[in-house]
Simulated scan of single mutants.
Amino acid sequence: MDSITVIPGDGIGPEVVECALQVLDVLGIGLSADVLDHVCADRYRRDGLALNEADLARVSASSAVLLGAIGRPDLEETDYVRGVLLSLRHSFDLYANCRPVRLWHDRLSPLRDPASRMLDCVIVRENTEGLYSGIGGNLRTSSPQEVAIDADINTWHGVSRILDYAFFTARREVCLVDKANAVRAGGRLWQECWRRSAERHPETATRHLYIDAAAMKLVTEPGRFDVIVASNSYGDILSDLAAALAGGIGLAPSASLNPESGFGLFEPVHGSAPDIAGQGIANPFACLLTAGLMIRHLGYKTEAAAIDAAVAGSIAAGRVTPDLGGSLSTREVTRAVLAAL
């Protein structure tokens, strides 16, 4: 029996995680869930603890983590979010962030031309280096002479392994996105690692775009993309753009993986959405699809496909929350998916 760690978190996190656990339960695959509902903003506010060693020990005893959402507006200036998410990423070396993006129904696309709407790709984002590595600081804070520095960290090891994982994920093509023409040092490293990785995978087509061109092409030719691989910050930006083209972040799942150990953190992209928390209107689809990613990763491919089909059927029938143009509540949408399953 596989064991998973569940961190409901903050805002709409507990609401959508409850829905995901109901779906996993009805599938009957026998997952055992260790729920860490104390890892949340309230505990951090009270005790100053984000994720401690005891919590990490419980996580390490499982096969994967299902996380709802982390974050609250009154804690934006603290290390709370980094203390949870970056602690998990670095403790388990979850270097490959994988965000599949699919247009689930034609009516959800914001693009005017039906012929341009097709989107079915995966954005592979380096998850432990880059601008989000936390290296840097401020000098002469809050003065007219203040200097702020954030270092963009790229290593041969880190870049090479994310590129190889992108090739492993690809069906037909890998597109590298960078800004090597302007960001020279890191760009040179990415380009050299890219050349060598492509030589190791001659069976897969390759393409290269600068980040500005890639953003444009995602809007004008989204159907051309199969796998996009990019640095931490570029991948973060492109994945949200792609999610908007597919109907919004309420449909966006993600996985942060260590392909060597097999361990993964699975999290819907939408965040804690404090403005709608507690109203019962949060879209559960992203978390349900994230749960599907997780069980597919654990080997339950048939059951994962059943979740995808149930979500697609619910969307096609208009059984959706207000953000997708419907009128159903979070629980009503979940009941529709459960009925389909």
Rank of each mutant, 00 (worst) to 15 (best):
A64V: 00
P73R: 13
A61G: 12
A148M: 12
T290R: 13
R140L: 10
R112L: 14
W156A: 13
L51C: 05
I211S: 11
R46P: 09
I211W: 06
L31E: 00
S143D: 11
E221V: 07
I4E: 00
A277G: 08
D323T: 11
S60L: 01
N138E: 11
E303L: 08
L328E: 14
A180W: 14
S233D: 10
R89S: 05
I135W: 05
C98K: 01
L56R: 02
S63D: 12
T204M: 08
I276A: 03
L94I: 11
I123F: 06
A242T: 09
H208A: 15
P14D: 08
F92R: 03
P253F: 03
G187M: 14
S272M: 08
A198Q: 11
A273K: 01
G187P: 10
D164K: 07
G223K: 05
R102S: 13
L298A: 07
L238T: 04
Y165P: 05
P268N: 11
D93T: 14
D10F: 01
R172E: 00
R102A: 15
V122H: 00
E332N: 03
T141Y: 05
G271V: 08
V183W: 10
R82F: 06
A244Y: 03
S133W: 15
I12S: 13
A282N: 06
S261Q: 06
A340G: 06
V229R: 03
S254N: 07
L111E: 05
N258V: 11
N181G: 12
A255W: 00
H208Q: 14
Q191T: 15
H38F: 07
G262S: 07
L36A: 10
S142P: 06
F266D: 00
P8V: 02
R171V: 08
G158S: 15
I276E: 03
I295C: 08
A214P: 04
N258P: 02
S91D: 06
L94N: 04
L86C: 01
R161K: 11
H105D: 15
N154P: 14
R184C: 12
A170S: 09
D10C: 09
F266C: 02
G247S: 10
S329G: 15
V337L: 13
E221P: 04
D323G: 09
L189D: 09
S143P: 09
A304T: 01
P222G: 04
V39Y: 01
L218C: 09
C40K: 07
R161V: 05
P202W: 05
A41S: 12
I276Y: 02
P144Q: 07
A20K: 01
L341D: 02
A61N: 14
D113W: 05
G292T: 00
L257S: 01
A246F: 10
T220R: 10
F167H: 15
D308C: 12
V124S: 02
E53F: 06
E267R: 04
